[in-house]
Amino acid sequence: MATKKIINKGDDAVDEMLDGILDAHADTVMRLDSNKRSIVSRNGPRKGKVGLVIGGGSGHEPSFLGFVGKGLADAAAIGNVFASPPPDPIIECTKAVDGGAGVLYMYGNYAGDVMNFDMAAEMVAMDDIEVRTVLSTDDIASAPLNEKHKRRGVAGNFFIFKAAGAACDKMLSLDECERIARKANDRTYTVGVALSPCSLPQTRKWNFEMGDDEMEIGMGIHGEPGMSREPLQTADDITDRIIDKIFGEMAPAKGDRVAVLVNSLGSTPLMELYIMNRRVHQRLRERGVEVHKTWVGTYCSSLEMAGASITLMHLDDELTGMIDHPCDCAMFSVK
């Protein structure tokens, strides 16, 4: 039985979505004539500024194109659903945002993205554009700490891109922008829980199976295997499992500061997210950890998957300033 979606043709879903986004946010973003999958900020790129290009597969909205705008990403290369963008839109984004100070590539640690962004970097090097790459690896459930380089990038992209975008907007050097991006990644921790699968527009079939009374802790945003599948638990129990995993690696001390993100994977409503957020704050207060800022909502989705993720960024003064730096993007802003 096919799943229900409000689409026309599955193969047209991404481009028709982009049409709608550009109609809604024409004052913030534009599409390059040279490639319809290259989305660029109207107000971000400028001479002497390090350009920030992000990107990845569709189906994770508002990631990635929702974070394009002044003060955050200068451009996003858009792939098909759950698929890396090919090199061409990445190349066009790079040329469009190059202000002569170099360009920073940031995206989740997935094989297709690494291959295609690396190819793009090699191509633009022939035009004397210097590119640095920082992969996001915030999904601590996806590999042990001694294999951090294998970890996936998930909702923590929100904080990692935000910090890097602020550094670029402050007109810092390419070396400094890369340093801050790596620092942000190293201090960002995410764990998710899935309650049900999602379905691709082209197939309209569930991409994995899950029982009515099951959940999976640590599942990836494309349905990658998590840490464990087990009976569905209460919101507090789920949140505790996630927070315990994050605390086990982050090891925050009394008086430390964090930024919090409680993210919907697609169909989980705000009611349930705020119930989880309540427990996150309880656990942080018990540990004596200060919450600097909190975001609750959909920031990195997986189509209509039911479930949520929790992200903590372990702040210091420098990262706090980057998180607070103003930005004005298509689907996110900080004043």
Rank of each mutant, 00 (worst) to 15 (best):
residue 134 V to G: 01
residue 193 V to N: 08
residue 257 R to I: 12
residue 173 S to T: 04
residue 237 D to R: 10
residue 168 C to N: 06
residue 196 S to H: 12
residue 195 L to V: 06
residue 137 T to P: 08
residue 138 D to E: 09
residue 55 G to P: 00
residue 21 I to M: 10
residue 203 T to M: 03
residue 264 S to I: 01
residue 5 K to R: 14
residue 278 R to G: 15
residue 2 A to S: 07
residue 92 E to H: 00
residue 131 V to C: 04
residue 308 A to Y: 09
residue 1 M to I: 15
residue 304 E to T: 14
residue 308 A to H: 10
residue 183 K to L: 15
residue 188 T to C: 11
residue 308 A to T: 10
residue 120 A to D: 05
residue 128 D to N: 15
residue 60 H to R: 01
residue 78 I to Y: 12
residue 290 E to T: 12
residue 65 L to A: 14
residue 19 D to M: 04
residue 120 A to N: 05
residue 90 I to H: 02
residue 277 N to W: 14
residue 166 A to N: 05
residue 150 K to I: 00
residue 52 L to S: 04
residue 106 M to D: 02
residue 151 R to E: 03
residue 300 C to M: 15
residue 216 E to R: 03
residue 245 K to V: 06
residue 157 N to L: 10
residue 85 P to L: 08
residue 37 R to K: 15
residue 186 D to G: 15
residue 226 G to I: 13
residue 189 Y to I: 12
residue 47 K to G: 00
residue 310 I to E: 12
residue 85 P to E: 04
residue 219 M to N: 02
residue 84 S to D: 08
residue 165 G to V: 03
residue 57 G to S: 11
residue 214 E to D: 08
residue 163 A to Q: 07
residue 70 K to D: 09
residue 290 E to C: 05
residue 243 I to H: 11
residue 63 S to Y: 02
residue 159 F to L: 14
residue 81 V to S: 03
residue 23 D to K: 12
residue 104 L to Q: 09
residue 229 R to Q: 02
residue 293 K to M: 06
residue 145 L to H: 08
residue 245 K to A: 13
residue 297 G to E: 07
residue 56 G to V: 05
residue 290 E to L: 13
residue 207 N to L: 12
residue 319 L to S: 06
residue 289 V to L: 13
residue 3 T to F: 08
residue 17 M to R: 07
residue 8 N to P: 07
residue 306 A to D: 10
residue 70 K to E: 10
residue 224 E to S: 03
residue 326 P to S: 08
residue 40 V to T: 01
residue 302 S to E: 06
residue 274 Y to V: 09
residue 63 S to W: 00
residue 143 A to M: 02
residue 210 M to V: 13
residue 8 N to R: 13
residue 38 S to A: 14
residue 5 K to H: 12
residue 56 G to Q: 05
residue 198 C to S: 12
residue 262 V to L: 10
residue 145 L to G: 15
residue 193 V to F: 05
residue 216 E to A: 00
residue 143 A to C: 06
residue 11 D to Y: 09
residue 329 C to T: 07
residue 299 Y to C: 13
residue 237 D to V: 12
residue 153 G to T: 07
residue 159 F to M: 13
residue 333 S to V: 09
residue 285 R to Y: 07
residue 262 V to T: 11
residue 207 N to E: 13
residue 89 P to Q: 08
residue 250 M to C: 08
residue 201 P to L: 00
residue 276 M to N: 14
residue 188 T to S: 10
residue 303 L to I: 11
residue 76 A to S: 15
residue 269 P to V: 09
residue 286 E to G: 11
residue 65 L to W: 02
residue 172 L to G: 01
residue 288 G to D: 06
residue 110 Y to G: 14
residue 327 C to Q: 07
residue 168 C to V: 07
residue 202 Q to D: 14
residue 308 A to G: 14
residue 134 V to Q: 01
residue 69 G to M: 03
residue 289 V to S: 12
residue 228 S to F: 09
residue 254 K to N: 13
residue 41 S to K: 03
residue 135 L to G: 00
residue 303 L to H: 13
residue 254 K to L: 08
residue 300 C to P: 01
residue 300 C to L: 14
residue 293 K to T: 10
residue 264 S to Y: 03
residue 106 M to Y: 04
residue 215 M to H: 06
residue 18 L to D: 02
residue 216 E to D: 05
residue 77 A to W: 10
residue 48 G to L: 01
residue 182 R to V: 14
residue 217 I to H: 03
